[in-house]
Design a protein around this nucleic acid. Sequence first.
RNA 1: GUGGAUGUAGCUCAAUGGUAGAGCCCCGGCUUGUGGUGCCGGUGGUUGUGGGUUCGAGUCCCAUCAUCCACCCCA
Length: 427
Amino acid sequence: MIKAIRGMHDVLPTESAAWRYIERTFRQLMDSYGYGEMRMPVVEKAALFVRTVGEATDIVEKEMYNFVDRNDERLCLRPEGTAGCVRAGIENGLLQRSGPQRVWYCGPMFRRERPQKGRYRQFHQFGVETFGMAGPEIDAELLLLTARLWKMLGINGLELQINSLGTVAARARYRQQLVAYFNGYLEQLDSDSQRRLKTNPLRILDSKNPSMQAVIDGAPKLCDCLDDESEKDFSRLCALLDAAGVAYSVNPRLVRGLDYYEKLVFDWVGTIGAQSTVCAGGRYDGLVSQLGGPVTPAAGFALGIERLLALLDEEKLAALKPVSDAYLVLAGEAAREHGLVLAESVRDTLPELRLRVNCGDGSFKSQLKRADRSGASLALILGEDELAEARITVKYLRQERQQQTIPQTALTALLREEICNHVQERG
RNA sequence: GUGGAUGUAGCUCAAUGGUAGAGCCCCGGCUUGUGGUGCCGGUGGUUGUGGGUUCGAGUCCCAUCAUCCACCCCA
C-alpha cells in the first residue's frame, strides 16, 4: 500500500473544523488591522532562499526540497514565506512608491527535517509582513496583533521574548568579538558549538548544554555592542509595549536562524513537545533591496499552525466538530426518491441549513441512530405513511418534545423557525 | 543527520515461542416505523514491510519504513 510521505499528514474532517476556525480567526484579525492577503506559489527558484535565508543555514544546506525542472532551472518547495512574499511584492510593483504595505499569507511550507511533535516536513504557516514602515510603532503593532490573536483563540501561557540584534554592521562587529572570545575557550565548547563557531556563532548563545553555561555567561553581550539607532528603537518599542500592557521579557540570547533579520527579533514561546516557538519574527530592513527592490524597511513574523493547534483547548476543539442540523430518514424506495427531491427544494430556500440525507441502505432504527450521531437536532422522517399524505414527521432529538407530522409544504418554515433563526456565524 | 522507545482489527489495547482476542466503532436482532442507557448476534487481521533462526514466530535476530521522545534545527 502506498502511504503518505514521511512528515506529511492528512487533515481529516474532524480536524479540519479546527483548521477552519483558526483560518477564519486569522482573516478576522487581519481584516480588523487592515492587512491584505497575498497568495504566493509553493514552488520558487532555489536561489531565492539561498540568497535570503542564508547559504550556511540548515534550512538551505540540508532541509530544502530541491529539484531541477525540465528546463534545467533549479527550483525548490518553499521552506518559508518571507522571501517569496518580498519577491512577489517587488515583482508586482507593490513596493514602488506605493507607500506602506501590510500583507499576510497562509499556506504550506516544506523542510526536510526529522519529524517529531510540532515539526513536520510539510507544515503550515500564517505569516504577516509589513513594508515601508521603519519606526518601532509597526513593530509594536505586530506584537499587539499577535497578542490579540492569542486572546481570540483563548490561548494562555505564551511568553513574549524580545531582543535586538542591532544593524547588520553592529552584528558583524559583535560576531567578531564573540568568535574571538569563544576561540579562547575552544576546549570547553562541545562539538556542536565548535561547529557553530564557524557557521553561526550567535547560535552558541542559546545552546541547551548545561556544561557550557559558564562559558556562555562570560561571553560578551550583544546589547553592549548595539548601535545607537537600534538601541533607541528597542527602548522605544519596550515603552510602546508597556503602554499597551503587553508583557514581555528581554532575552539577550535570542537570535535567529535566518540571515535576513536585523534589529528587533521576537519569539512567542510555549511548549509543544520539545518545540517552544509558536510564532517568531523581527525586522529585515535589508531584504527588499537585497532582492533588487527599493530600499524598504520591513518587519514581519510567521506562526506555525500545527503548533498553534496543539495549544488549543481540547474542549474548544470538541465544540468545533462538524455537525448537521437535520437528518432525513427515508423508509421505502418511493421515499428514497422523493426524499432527495424534497431535500433539494429545502436547500433552495435555506442554503445555510445543514441537511444530511440518508443514502443507501439502513434499517429505520439504524437511520435514526445515524441521525443521532450526525449531531442533528432534528430527524425528518419520510416513510410510506407520510408519503401517501404528502406529509413529513419531525422528531426532536435534543429536546423533550413530542414529534409532529406536518405537511411537506410547511417544512421549510419549520426548519427556518427551529434552526436557521438561531444559527450564529459558523465556519 | 545522531541516540533511544514503540509498531497487533477503523480506534484504544491484550495474547509463557504452540489455534490471534477484548472494549469501542460499524451492521443486524430483541422492538413490522423511532436514536441516545440495556441484552444477544455478526462483519472486520498477510500482527508496519522484507528477510532469518525454529518442528513451530505477533513473540527471538537482522534490515527497512513509520510514529513518538531527546539532540540538532526551527514556526
